[in-house]
């Protein structure tokens, strides 16, 4: 069996997370552009800041959450660690460190992708061109995913890569839902009643879930249906449930097949996460408070991430 350095495992984990993150930000910007045009012409870019809890940092640098400011902040702003450019720079840096391990095609694609991105000027992200920019980002990330699926050697490293991607994906889905849910649904009483369909469409589309949703719910559109689909549908690849199932399988593989001692140490956090999402009922979740629930999921994902770091990447324990 090959020797995998702890640092390599961690880098692979983060390559996947950063690529997934860049793709998620592109999805959110893309859909927000449609969103903000759709409703009475009002601009609503501050909601994107809310998704990532970036308001304090953003307003230290900018006076207003104008479209131009927010879009720049999340696309080409080098100084903002949550921008697409920063995420892909980190992905590339990690991939650079992992070049002995990843396939040449994986490296070449990330390298070209990043070099093209950083050569873009501010005119490429102005609102009329934003959709095309987001398409460029999504396609680049998806190309990475496809190349990785088709060329990356499937040893322990693959498990860490997959776990990283699924943790990030689950986290992004909860954020998307958390921020939009309140904007979409002023009062809990309205849960289950038909709402402004175009807004929910946009939410589903930002998760690439509209067509899948329609296969499950051919007609009608309620808030709880949409939230339930995004959180708990086992066949929808971006649902939290599907992500957790995949994480669970990879952790089991590390423990049982590869006999990684540290994998046993993360089962506690994983079990807690599974208890939270397996067999959860959306109506109940909404009654108890969706925001609180999403918050718990996010915290549990962080705990899992921290435990993986401690048990397998060699981070010092927190005691």
């Amino acid at each position: 069996m090959s020797i995998l350095l702890s640092r390599y495992a961690e880098d692979l984990f983060w390559i996947a997370r950063y690529i997934e993150r860049a793709e998620a930000v592109a999805r959110i910007l893309d859909v927000n552009e449609t969103f903000s045009r759709d409703s009475r012409g009002g601009q609503n870019w501050q909601s994107v800041l809310a998704i990532y809890s970036d308001e304090p940092r953003f307003f230290r640098e900018h006076a207003s959450s104008s479209a131009e400011n927010v879009i720049h902040f999340y696309t080409l702003d080098r100084r903002n660690p949550t921008s697409i450019l920063s995420a892909l720079r980190m992905a590339r840096e990690n991939a650079r460190a992992m070049r002995p391990l990843i396939s040449t095609e994986m490296w070449t694609q990330i390298n070209i992708f990043y070099n093209r991105l950083q050569a873009l000027g501010p005119q490429e992200i102005t609102e009329p061109r934003l959709a095309r920019f987001c398409q460029f980002i999504k396609e680049g990330c998806q190309t990475h995913t496809g190349i990785t699926e088709g060329t990356f050697y499937r040893d322990e490293g693959w498990c860490f890569y997959q776990i990283g991607r699924q943790i990030e994906r689950a986290d992004q889905t909860t954020r998307l839902l958390d921020a939009k849910y309140h904007l979409l649904l002023p009062s809990v009483d309205q849960v289950g009643t038909p709402v402004d369909a175009s807004r929910w469409n946009a939410l589903l589309r930002s998760a690439s879930g509209y067509h899948a949703f329609r296969r499950v719910h051919p007609s009608g559109l309620t808030a709880s249906d949409v939230a339930g689909f995004l959180l708990f549908h086992r066949a929808f690849p971006r649902s939290v449930l599907a992500c957790v199932a995949e994480i669970s399988e990879r952790v089991t593989e590390l423990r049982s097949f590869y006999a990684i001692p540290g994998a046993t140490g993360v089962t506690g956090a994983l079990d807690d996460l599974r208890r939270l999402v397996d067999d959860a009922d959306i109506e109940q979740v909404i009654r108890d408070g969706l925001h609180e629930y999403l918050d718990r999921v996010q915290r549990q994902l962080n705990t899992l991430s921290r435990d993986i770091g401690r048990e397998m990447f060699g981070h010092p324990g927190t005691g």
Partner: peptide
């Protein structure tokens, strides 16, 4: 940072 010396022997830090 991937290596350490213990009892005058060199080791690398792996996932195992």
């Amino acid at each position: 940072r991937d290596l350490l010396v213990d009892n005058d022997r060199v080791y690398m830090k792996t996932i195992r």
